Amino acid sequence: TEDEKKIQELLKRANGDVSKAEKLAQSQGNEELARRLREYANK
């Protein structure tokens, strides 16, 4: 999905570090994506 692409892109930029990727999403003002990242990471 589009969200998964965004999540994978963020994870790439954060070198696979979920908490960093989450902070990136939040810094972009994207709380929804940050929440999805957390769920994605907890799979």
Results as ranks from 00 to 15, higher is better:
Thr1Asn: 12
Thr1Ser: 13
Thr1Val: 12
Thr1Ile: 12
Thr1Gln: 11
Thr1Arg: 12
Thr1Gly: 12
Thr1Leu: 13
Glu2Lys: 07
Glu2Arg: 08
Glu2Pro: 10
Glu2Trp: 11
Glu2Ala: 11
Asp3Tyr: 15
Asp3Arg: 07
Asp3Glu: 14
Asp3Ile: 15
Asp3Met: 15
Asp3Cys: 15
Glu4Thr: 08
Glu4His: 10
Glu4Lys: 08
Glu4Val: 12
Lys5Asp: 10
Lys5Tyr: 10
Lys5Gly: 09
Lys5Ser: 10
Lys5Arg: 12
Lys5His: 09
Lys5Glu: 10
Lys5Trp: 13
Lys6Met: 15
Lys6Ala: 14
Lys6Phe: 12
Lys6Leu: 14
Lys6Pro: 04
Lys6Arg: 11
Lys6Thr: 12
Lys6Gln: 13
Lys6Glu: 15
Ile7Pro: 01
Ile7Asn: 01
Ile7Leu: 14
Ile7Arg: 00
Ile7Phe: 10
Gln8Asn: 10
Gln8Ile: 15
Gln8Val: 12
Gln8Ala: 11
Gln8Trp: 12
Gln8Glu: 12
Gln8Phe: 11
Glu9Asn: 05
Glu9Trp: 02
Glu9Tyr: 01
Glu9Phe: 00
Glu9Gly: 04
Leu10Ile: 10
Leu10Phe: 09
Leu10Glu: 03
Leu10Gly: 01
Leu10Ser: 03
Leu10Tyr: 09
Leu10Thr: 02
Leu11Ser: 01
Leu11Gly: 02
Leu11Pro: 02
Leu11Asp: 02
Leu11Ile: 14
Leu11Lys: 01
Leu11Met: 06
Lys12Tyr: 06
Lys12Ile: 10
Lys12Cys: 15
Arg13Gln: 15
Arg13Leu: 15
Arg13Asp: 11
Arg13Val: 13
Arg13Pro: 02
Arg13Ile: 14
Ala14Met: 10
Ala14Asn: 04
Ala14Ile: 03
Ala14Trp: 05
Ala14Tyr: 09
Ala14Phe: 14
Ala14Lys: 00
Ala14Gly: 03
Ala14Ser: 08
Asn15Glu: 09
Asn15Gln: 09
Asn15Lys: 10
Asn15Trp: 08
Asn15Phe: 09
Asn15Arg: 07
Asn15Ser: 07
Gly16Gln: 05
Gly16Lys: 01
Gly16Val: 00
Gly16Cys: 15
Gly16Met: 06
Gly16Asn: 06
Gly16Tyr: 10
Asp17Ser: 06
Asp17His: 04
Asp17Arg: 02
Asp17Phe: 02
Asp17Met: 03
Asp17Gly: 01
Val18Glu: 02
Val18Cys: 08
Val18His: 06
Val18Gly: 02
Val18Pro: 07
Val18Met: 06
Ser19Ile: 12
Ser19Pro: 05
Ser19His: 12
Ser19Ala: 12
Ser19Met: 10
Ser19Lys: 13
Ser19Thr: 12
Ser19Asn: 12
Lys20Glu: 11
Lys20Gly: 05
Lys20Asn: 06
Lys20Ile: 14
Lys20Tyr: 12
Lys20Cys: 15
Ala21Asp: 00
Ala21Val: 03
Ala21Cys: 07
Ala21Arg: 01
Ala21Ile: 03
Ala21Pro: 00
Ala21Tyr: 00
Glu22Ser: 07
Glu22Thr: 08
Glu22Phe: 04
Glu22Gln: 07
Lys23Arg: 11
Lys23His: 10
Lys23Glu: 12
Leu24Phe: 06
Leu24Trp: 08
Leu24Arg: 03
Leu24Ser: 04
Leu24Gln: 05
Leu24Pro: 01
Leu24Lys: 03
Ala25His: 00
Ala25Thr: 01
Ala25Pro: 00
Gln26Cys: 15
Gln26Glu: 10
Gln26Asp: 05
Gln26Trp: 07
Gln26Ile: 15
Gln26Pro: 01
Gln26Ala: 11
Gln26Gly: 05
Gln26Tyr: 08
Gln26Leu: 15
Gln26Arg: 14
Ser27Trp: 06
Ser27Val: 08
Ser27Pro: 01
Ser27Ile: 12
Ser27Tyr: 07
Ser27Thr: 08
Gln28Ala: 11
Gln28Arg: 04
Gln28Met: 15
Gln28Lys: 04
Gln28Tyr: 08
Gln28Glu: 15
Gly29Tyr: 08
Gly29Asn: 06
Gly29Ser: 04
Gly29Pro: 02
Gly29Phe: 06
Gly29Ala: 03
Asn30Tyr: 12
Asn30Cys: 14
Asn30His: 09
Asn30Lys: 05
Asn30Pro: 01
Asn30Ile: 04
Asn30Thr: 04
Asn30Phe: 13
Glu31Val: 09
Glu31Gln: 08
Glu31Phe: 14
Glu31Met: 12
Glu31Arg: 06
Glu32Ser: 08
Glu32Lys: 05
Glu32His: 07
Leu33Trp: 03
Leu33Val: 04
Leu33Met: 07
Leu33Glu: 02
Leu33Gln: 01
Ala34Cys: 04
Ala34Lys: 05
Ala34Glu: 02
Ala34Ser: 05
Ala34Tyr: 02
Arg35Pro: 01
Arg35Met: 08
Arg35Trp: 03
Arg35Tyr: 02
Arg35His: 07
Arg35Phe: 05
Arg35Val: 07
Arg35Ile: 07
Arg35Gly: 05
Arg35Leu: 08
Arg36Cys: 08
Arg36Lys: 15
Arg36Gly: 04
Arg36Glu: 04
Arg36Thr: 05
Leu37Ser: 00
Leu37Cys: 03
Leu37Phe: 03
Leu37Met: 06
Arg38Tyr: 03
Arg38Met: 05
Arg38Glu: 05
Arg38Asn: 06
Arg38Thr: 04
Arg38Leu: 09
Arg38Val: 08
Arg38Asp: 04
Glu39Ala: 04
Glu39Asn: 03
Glu39Lys: 03
Glu39Phe: 02
Glu39Arg: 01
Glu39Asp: 11
Glu39Ile: 02
Glu39Val: 02
Tyr40Lys: 06
Tyr40Pro: 04
Tyr40Val: 09
Tyr40Trp: 11
Tyr40Thr: 07
Tyr40Asn: 06
Tyr40Arg: 07
Tyr40Ser: 07
Tyr40Met: 15
Ala41Leu: 14
Ala41Cys: 14
Ala41Asn: 08
Ala41Arg: 08
Ala41Ile: 14
Ala41Thr: 08
Ala41Val: 13
Asn42Asp: 14
Asn42Ala: 12
Asn42Leu: 08
Asn42Glu: 15
Asn42Pro: 09
Asn42Thr: 12
Asn42Lys: 14
Lys43Val: 12
Lys43Pro: 08
Lys43Glu: 13
Lys43Met: 14
